[in-house]
Design a protein around this nucleic acid. Structure first.
Lengths: 201, 201
DNA sequence: GGATTTGTGAACGATCTCGTTCCTTGTTAG
DNA sequence: CTAACAAGGAACGAGATCGTTCACAAATCC
């Protein structure tokens, strides 16, 4: 498509555009074959590029895969949710956000990190540091605000309670094969979290 | 070691003995390379046997891997715990049993099933049917006995509550890289499950 | 516009894997 | 004890992958 002012369209991807395409292809290849079963040849084919362009950036398939994982995690930082003024709404919003993330490429990354963590626990540690812990901090902040509002008693909370939301989400995803639905999210908040927190209705 | 009455020791493994050795080697190879990255050559080498002996039983590495998974799951059926007369002790016993299972080969299987379930959810469904659901049934029976004893009120319980124990165990295993320790098990029972169940002390 | 950089496709040699076949020999069954 | 079966090791041809190199040409930079 040539326009009078825009000049000829380019026929090749270069620089960052190519890296993005390679990342997408690598993620698809890894989802299909696992990190350890994926190949540079496969990724190059899927991207529609030459191997030399891959090897100019990454020295092997593992390095490329890890780059994809880290980039995906960086792109999946949990959003900062507005203070709704209600603990229940805050918790629901946080869980819905997490569920939304898991409907995207982060799910593939998480699955592979889990498989890899037998031999390299640093990968899931990275996931925790970049995704898990920021979300935990958000939940703590929500609870502190709720205490300030008098919604829950001001007392220490067993850290296990903070662990319940990601644990259930993960269990649903990995063993039931589905991202947690909204009905379950509401039940988790109303029937598990709020009672444990001593929520005052 | 030849004894006067036992006859010469055999130098080859045959039949079931060889299958067990192949299974162990396959599990180790899969733990290291993933199901999709493992090879028949690698498993044969690790077993110390010829490929023909493998191919006489399994037509490819995937079939061997799935056989290993199913066998491991069948060997990992949850034990039947004695009725302790106390809900707390029952729950602790059940969770400790599950943790014990995850210290063995079942952990490798679970990790691989999770990685595989992107494309083949039937595998984790099998895990749920053979391991997850029998444990759930045990927990339900424990709660019914506790209701009969008056330890907890006789009322419907949100199924999410039954999901919390395996969810936490899984979360700890997969994202923290450790089988749940006994202190956490006790806290989970005392600070999460029993309060949610309305346990009367 | 020219020089440099980069992308694409192909080719290369080495290595690995697949699935099969064969030979030798240990093991089992009758 | 003998025949049949099965294990272990090696070899085979085909295919795939790895990492590298090259030629050509598109894209970028000055």
């Amino acid at each position: 498509m040539t326009t009078a002012t825009a000049g000829p369209a380019s026929t090749r991807r270069t620089g960052e555009e190519l890296v993005l395409a390679v990342h997408a292809a690598a993620l698809a290849e890894i989802a299909e074959h696992g990190l350890r079963g994926a190949s540079m040849d496969g990724i190059a084919r899927r991207t529609g590029t030459g191997k030399a362009a891959l090897y100019r950036r990454w020295s092997n398939v593992r390095e490329l895969g890890l780059d994809v994982f880290l980039t995906t995690m960086a792109d999946s930082s949990p959003a900062n949710y507005p203070d709704t003024g209600s603990l229940r709404e805050d918790l629901l919003g946080s869980l819905r956000g997490f569920a939304g993330l898991l409907r995207g490429p982060l799910q593939t990354v998480l699955r592979e990190l889990i498989s890899e963590s037998t031999h390299d626990p640093s990968l899931v540690a990275e996931f925790q540091a970049r995704v898990g812990e920021p979300m935990q901090a958000q939940r703590i902040a929500m609870l502190q605000r709720a205490m300030g509002r008098g919604e829950i008693p001001t007392q220490p909370i067993d850290p296990l309670v903070f662990e319940l939301p990601p644990a259930i989400v993960l269990h649903r995803l990995l063993l039931c094969g589905e991202v947690i639905d909204d009905e379950t999210t509401v039940k988790l908040v109303d029937n598990v979290l709020l009672p444990l927190l001593g929520y005052r209705r």
